[in-house]
Design a binder for these strands. Structure first.
Lengths: 360, 360
DNA sequence: TTGTAAGCGTTATCAT
DNA sequence: ATGATAACGCTTACAA
């Protein structure tokens, strides 16, 4: 049997349930039940339907199913940008968990822009996603609440939304910053600067609060000129650090609150011809694999980002699938612990080394 | 007017087009036309419908629309993992372009696993995505062709699929490796090793080919023991580099074909107590912002990943929306140029410095 | 056990 | 310019 041009190029229609049913000589209802393994049917029908589906290589149409079932098996995930080492592991974990349970993940990069956040949220709403995970953002509380009130489960990561009764996964941000600064204080530092992220972002605000708390506990006065807005941006952090280093009474230690900002700060130090930790001690955030390759290896605060995404996704699935009215899932707040990885980028302002625990 | 508990907490049904129509006292068809600004209607109806929609804060249901229109305004993107610096910018660019045109992006992490790739592809197919972008993977050609034959536009990034007539965005992989190795040869190196990714992955294979070509052009014999499988993995690369350094006749230079592998290699060098570039010269791939922070600043090959994602998404949108039968879009292959960023991690095996162009 | 038919919320055709 | 009405492909009562 030959295939002539016309025949071969004819686009063949995707097989429908109707086709499967016809081929198996049963009704569509029965075919559907067999394929979904629900309701009742005879063994004979079962095998005929299964065979027919196999032969036609039938695939159900998820759109039609979603319309009927009123759920899409899809989540939306909002982050500032997937290029950030801060969010990539969170998203990866979410996608891992989601896909294992048959959910698709729609990625939304908001760049910390409330307008973008809102437009993504409304797009997700229109698309009927079954749930949304919102990560650290200074976004629009009102819109988020609207989504939640419309019945779409929301899980918050890092972010807190007053008046929104949604589970939240976060870390001991304030405490981690407090411990980092205390570490510096114990080494003898008094003039400790910090590069903060975006003020409106929860995690950033918390870290700044922890920084302040540590100073207050040690009876060290807070000085505004030692707090610089780094905006989670390498360039801004570079400039900010420059200004710090130009200060008459230069800080002897620096806490940078995100990986990009650590890089910016290190460039500024390098440009100024200064040395870490001889001239200035540095604690960074995030624990990229290159941190221990630097000279000197960097002391950092490490947060369990993958774990956060894991929990966020699991929580969301619980909310979507189970216990809808269960307060336990709705009201929970999970706070994960961070760790301070002491390497060699900090020492006493006098000159005594801080520690030597290395990770090479 | 008071809101009593029951009334307030009653979950209100999402407003439908029918509700808008009723409120505007027109038919649903007319309401639909007004909202989509298609077909004909009077100015009077127009404003009534618009007002009604506004008052009810009506949002169309994308699922129902998709079912009717047979398109979802969604793309699927397959990459090995979003945690890779290789893919993050590609995905970011794709999402940027897609969202601007109203497309949602579903993220799929395949880990270079053909089974995962296939199951994601079939999930995307079921969901009826309007197009798919597949990045560097050693996946299942047969399944990809099936998807394409089913009429779903596919754009390839890095990957080539023989017999699949899909546009492809790639870089001058082979040539970039060739130039990097030539650079080392010019410095006087003869024993040049390379850490390669996963053999089945197009970009990896091409880079390896470029490495070989450079050696052949220089009349240097290829030696199997100088080619190590790094599997895009830091650990594997660490072990592989260790073996290279243990070789009786140790290589004097090393080309690592991905960022993770560069890191693994650098740790091995550090662990062996050797120095770059005094004991061994290194050229890495990717240009992370920390590369110039290392001591010495790293010489690398930089590929325009964001740009690749941009073009991939634009190409896909063209395919989906426009010129469906246009051969120009279907058959194109775009090859982007890479650049060799010379810093200070390479010098002559004797001891003369290679270059001093720094990016601090 | 099986089939029929009524939705799910739109869009689009076709009379009026 | 407008309004019925039939799809879109599937699920799910309900009737047989």
């Amino acid at each position: 049997m030959k295939n002539y041009g016309n025949v071969q190029s004819k686009k063949l229609r995707r097989p429908l349930l109707k086709d499967v049913a016809e081929r198996a000589r049963v009704s569509v209802g029965l075919a559907s039940r067999v394929l979904r393994n629900t309701g009742s049917f005879s063994e004979a029908s079962r095998s005929r339907v299964l065979n027919a589906a196999e032969e036609l290589s039938y695939t159900p149409d998820a759109v039609a199913r979603s319309l009927k079932q009123r759920r899409t098996k899809a989540f939306g995930v909002l982050i500032s940008t997937i290029m950030s080492h801060f969010f990539a592991p969170v998203v990866r974990a979410i996608e891992d968990v989601a896909s294992k349970s048959g959910y698709a993940v729609t990625l939304c990069n908001t760049d910390y822009d409330p307008d973008k956040e809102q437009s993504y949220l409304s797009a997700l709403y229109e698309r009927g996603v079954d749930g949304v995970i919102v990560c650290a953002s200074p976004g629009n509380d009102a819109y988020l609440k609207k989504i939640a009130r419309a019945g779409i489960p929301v899980v918050l990561v890092f972010r807190k939304v007053p008046g929104l009764d949604a589970p939240r996964i976060t870390t001991d941000n304030a405490d981690s910053a407090r411990r980092a600064v205390s570490h510096l204080i114990e080494l003898g530092h008094r003039r400790i600067a910090t590069i903060t992220g975006i003020r409106g972002v929860q995690s950033s605000a918390e870290r700044l609060a922890g920084y302040r708390q540590a100073l207050l506990e040690a009876g060290i006065a807070l000085r505004d000129e030692l707090v610089v807005d780094g905006l989670y941006d390498e360039e801004a952090s570079f400039e900010g650090t420059r200004r710090l280093l130009d200060l008459e009474d230069r800080p002897t230690a620096l806490l940078t609150c995100a990986e990009t900002m650590t890089i910016g700060a290190l460039y500024a130090v390098k440009e100024a011809g200064l040395t870490v930790p001889a001239d200035i001690s540095i604690v960074g955030y995030g624990d990229p694999s290159w941190a221990a390759l630097l000279t000197p290896p960097l002391t950092v605060v490490r947060h369990p980002h993958y774990q956060m995404g894991l929990l966020a996704a699991q929580t969301l699935i619980g909310l979507v699938e189970g216990r809808g009215g269960d307060d336990k899932t709705t009201k929970q707040e999970i706070v994960l612990k961070s760790s301070l990885i002491v390497r060699e980028s900090c020492r006493s302002p006098g000159g005594v080394a801080g520690s030597a625990e290395n990770a090479g």
